[in-house]
């Protein structure tokens, strides 16, 4: 029997030193396209994720234009989601949803992805604990222990998960994917762990849309927290009380 144990390691001197050392190393190694997300919280690579953080995302729908799929394309490239021309079974981690108000006719366009809920229904229902929430708030699937029961897909209110319906080849090294397991957006956990932003956010920023702001909701001083205070925002299906990590402005 086994379950994901949240990190409870106390912050020690060593930890602080490593944080500073890691931050310094990052400063020195900043390369084009690599953005330092939260300098103060940069973590040494041998240290586990901390529950004091909570990764989150603000979608500014007023800056998201209809027809733009930069975030989706970046995600597909990052995770090797090539698709097999079978839209009903091909995986999608992030999708653009078009909205039209039935009364006023006002339209919006915005990306929908895993909302990284604090109390995620997919985590509750997973029989093996494969669908789990990391200490820092990222919800993902441990595909090593996923049995492919698809209960999480039944439970997710956002349709954020896909099931792999066939054998795959040519997976990308940082995003292992295989037949018979369920997958979904993991906030590009492999990038976040190395102080890079998720691919979708990076693409949106690089294209100067600025519709996606990623950061630490657990840190009141982070750019994301400041933005969340500044702009009115809401959660999708807020009626369910899931405290999602993805927030929307402008709908």
């Amino acid at each position: 029997m086994k379950s994901a144990t949240p990190n409870t390691r106390p912050d020690g001197e060593r930890r602080k030193f490593l944080e500073r050392a890691g931050a310094a190393a990052m400063l020195l190694s900043l390369a084009p396209g690599v953005r330092l997300v939260e300098l103060v919280l940069a973590r040494a690579e041998d240290q586990p994720v901390s529950a004091q953080m909570r990764w989150g995302l603000l979608v500014d729908a007023t800056k998201c234009s209809e027809g733009c799929t930069d975030c989706v394309d970046a995600c597909n490239d990052e995770h090797g989601l090539t698709g097999l021309g079978r839209p009903e079974t091909d995986a999608q981690y992030i999708r653009k949803v078009g909205l039209r108000d039935k009364t006023t006719g006002k339209t919006h366009s915005l990306p929908v992805l895993c909302q990284h809920c604090e109390t995620a229904p997919c985590v509750d229902v997973c029989p093996t604990g494969a669908s789990f929430r990391r200490a820092d708030g990222i919800v993902l699937v441990d595909k090593h222990i996923c049995i492919g029961c698809r209960y999480c897909m039944m439970a997710c209110p956002f349709k954020a998960r896909s099931f792999i319906h066939e054998d795959l080849t040519d997976q990308v090294p940082e995003s292992p994917r295989g037949k018979g397991t369920v997958e979904g957006c993991n906030f590009c956990v492999h990038r976040v762990d190395r102080d890079r932003e998720p691919a979708c956010v990076e693409a949106c920023t690089e294209a100067r849309h600025g519709a996606l702001v990623f950061g630490d909701m657990g840190n009141a001083n982070s750019a994301l927290s400041q933005k969340l205070r500044e702009l009115t925002n809401r959660q999708i299906r807020s009626d369910l009380g899931l405290n999602t990590g993805v927030r929307y402005h402008g709908i």
Binding site: R43, E45, D46, R134, D193
Partner: peptide, 8 residues
């Protein structure tokens, strides 16, 4: 996967 430790 669970603790985000990515030592090489």
């Amino acid at each position: 996967v669970h603790r985000g430790i990515r030592t090489k």
